[in-house]
């Protein structure tokens, strides 16, 4: 219940937005522009234009003209379509020993998410090591150190400006030796269009695959809910580089909708694993398609 309340609460502002827009649409009556306006309401939640078109098309096919007047009917239909789309990507079960590497563009909240993830696994009685492989951003390792102390987990870090792959190597080596359950790797924020930085990421990917093949390796893309249509481009290019296993959606406690995840699940088949709902260490939830749909509508 607490869990449910939090996500719905975080999405409440969103909810008001879409719900009130839908009500206004129905209040005006069903005109010729109904589908266009429905599409606009969906796009205003950062759902991609193509996905919005698809959803509206499905509604158009399913709904008979007279039934359109029934708001509840259309809302239920929307709910079904969105939830089905969200479920198109299968959520992987986390198995141990695990290496979890977080990737993403600058400023999406990777380091904070690592603090939260560390706490999440500690609470499940797992031993955790975090690897400060963001050796680029000023004081990134200091920031992660604070989180590691808060979550009471071990941290592996090198000098600023050193090779991030070397940090990863050290972290997995010591995890192997100590039998650590989870290694969580922080990486520097990088724009997905920078080829050389994506190569650096691939190298870290290879280090884990080569030096710790017995571990279950999960590569998660961290996406800021405030992001617009560019989220798809980010997901596509990071997926090309390191073959993503899932998404962590952050900053859902703002007024942004994060509707682009529907397109990520539907088009790219990349599932959402976790959702960030605040700045505290406990503000991380498992993603639930039903709750998300409930909240977004």
């Amino acid at each position: 219940m607490g869990l449910f309340g939090k996500i719905v609460g975080a999405l409440k502002k969103t909810r008001d937005g879409i719900a009130s827009k839908l009500s206004a649409l129905f209040a005006r009556g069903i005109g010729d522009d109904f589908y266009d306006e429905l599409e606009e309401i969906l796009i205003s939640a950062d759902i991609s234009v193509t996905t919005a078109e698809d959803i509206v098309e499905q509604i158009r096919e399913e709904a008979k003209r007279e039934k359109l007047k029934d708001k509840e009917y259309v809302v239920d239909l929307l709910k079904d379509v969105i939830e089905d789309t969200l479920c198109e990507a299968e959520v992987p079960e986390i198995e141990y020993p695990a290496v979890i590497m977080l990737v993403g563009v600058n400023g999406v909240g990777k380091t904070t998410t690592i603090g939260k993830l560390a706490n999440y696994f500690v609470r499940q009685k797992k031993s955790v090591t975090v690897a400060a492989a963001d050796t680029f951003r000023a004081a990134a390792a200091d920031q992660l150190t604070v989180w590691a102390e808060r979550a009471k987990v071990r941290i592996v870090k090198h000098e600023e400006g050193s090779d991030p792959s070397a940090v990863v190597y050290d972290a997995v080596s010591s995890a192997k030796a100590k039998g650590t359950d989870v290694v969580i790797v922080d990486t520097a924020g990088r724009l997905h269009v920078k080829a050389n930085l994506m190569e650096e990421l691939k190298k870290m990917d290879r280090v884990v695959g080569r030096d710790y093949p017995e571990a279950h390796f999960y590569k998660l893309l961290v996406l800021d809910a405030t992001t617009g249509q560019n989220a798809l481009s980010q997901a596509r290019l990071f997926d090309e580089a390191v073959d993503l296993d899932g998404i962590v959606l952050t900053k859902l406690d703002g007024t942004a909708k994060g509707g682009f995840v529907i397109s990520l699940c539907g088009e790219l088949k990349i599932p959402v694993l976790f959702v960030g709902t605040g700045e505290k260490m406990e503000d991380l939830e498992l993603f639930d398609a039903e709750e998300f749909t409930e909240g977004i509508l």
């Binding site: 800021d224 405030t226 992001t227 617009g228 007024t255 909708k257």
Partner: peptide
């Protein structure tokens, strides 16, 4: 403001 911001940019 992050140039990648979506629809929410107006609210912010």
């Amino acid at each position: 403001v992050d140039a990648m911001t979506g629809q929410d940019a107006v609210n912010v």
